[in-house]
Amino acid sequence: MSYKISKKYALSGPEGDSHKTSSKFIILHDVGANSGAAANASYFKNNWRTAQTYVAFVVGDGGKVYQVGTPGYVQWGAGSTANAQAPVQIELGRTTSKSQFKKDYAAYVELARDMAKKYGIPLTLDAGGASTTGVKTHRWETDHIWGSHVDPYGYLSPMGISKAQLQKNIKNGIKTTTNKIYTVKKGDSWWKIATDHKTTVAKLAVLHGKKVISMLYPGDKIKLK
């Protein structure tokens, strides 16, 4: 789990709905305005009764996760029918930064997958009708149960995430690659390094001023990817 859950804005005591849900849906939202995760989590915390809206988690601000409602208990993020069947609803805060969005989106997907697994909900997105369990968007809930909201696709699409991509990520997760550091040994060659490690060499030369030095020596470190 690459994210941490903050309970800074979590409802407590008599706050929030006391009814337990069934485990049929995980519902995905976005906040619908250009504001981040902490701002929306704070709003839910302080206005849940008067605004009559809140969810379990709000994600954003660079991949942060804030808990508001209690997972497994009714949250007021969709219509009453869907609310009663969704142990977890998740809001995604907005940003205009593509680099921040990448972090927010990764946490959003990972959290949705983790919560689906926790409650035995299939990792399918927007599949079937009202009787089909799985991960659902608010748009799906509007189309198949009740309401007029169409999030989160209106926010995701301009950021480069289509419905097909979201489906793929919910099913398989988001795979990331990291560079490995390799220490050169006597007798190594570029071909040997690349072949032995089944990789491409990210650093192809050692730079010395403006001159490219193609030689490496035992003990030198290079990046593999």
Rank of each mutant, 00 (worst) to 15 (best):
D61F: 05
Y155D: 02
F101Q: 00
K180Q: 15
Y43V: 00
K185T: 00
I145T: 04
E110D: 13
G219I: 10
K186N: 09
V55E: 10
A56R: 11
E141W: 08
L28F: 07
A39Y: 05
V201S: 03
F101P: 08
Q167T: 14
Y9I: 02
H208G: 05
T70N: 10
S18R: 10
A51E: 13
D17R: 11
G154N: 13
A38D: 14
L166G: 03
K210H: 12
T95N: 05
T176Q: 11
N47F: 14
L166N: 00
E141F: 12
V109Y: 03
G173K: 08
K192D: 12
H19V: 08
T137L: 06
Q52G: 01
G79N: 15
T176Y: 14
E15L: 03
I27N: 03
G128H: 09
G69E: 02
K225D: 00
D151P: 01
K8A: 04
K163H: 15
P14Y: 08
H149V: 01
T177F: 14
E141C: 09
A127C: 03
V74E: 07
G173D: 07
Y155L: 07
V109E: 01
T178K: 15
V150F: 10
G72W: 09
A116G: 05
Y119R: 07
L207Y: 15
W140T: 02
L28D: 03
G129H: 04
S214K: 14
T137F: 10
Y73R: 07
A37F: 06
A82V: 10
R139Q: 13
A82R: 04
S18F: 05
I5Q: 02
A38Y: 11
S131N: 14
V59E: 05
T70A: 11
Y155W: 07
A86T: 10
D30I: 04
A78G: 01
S12M: 04
E15D: 15
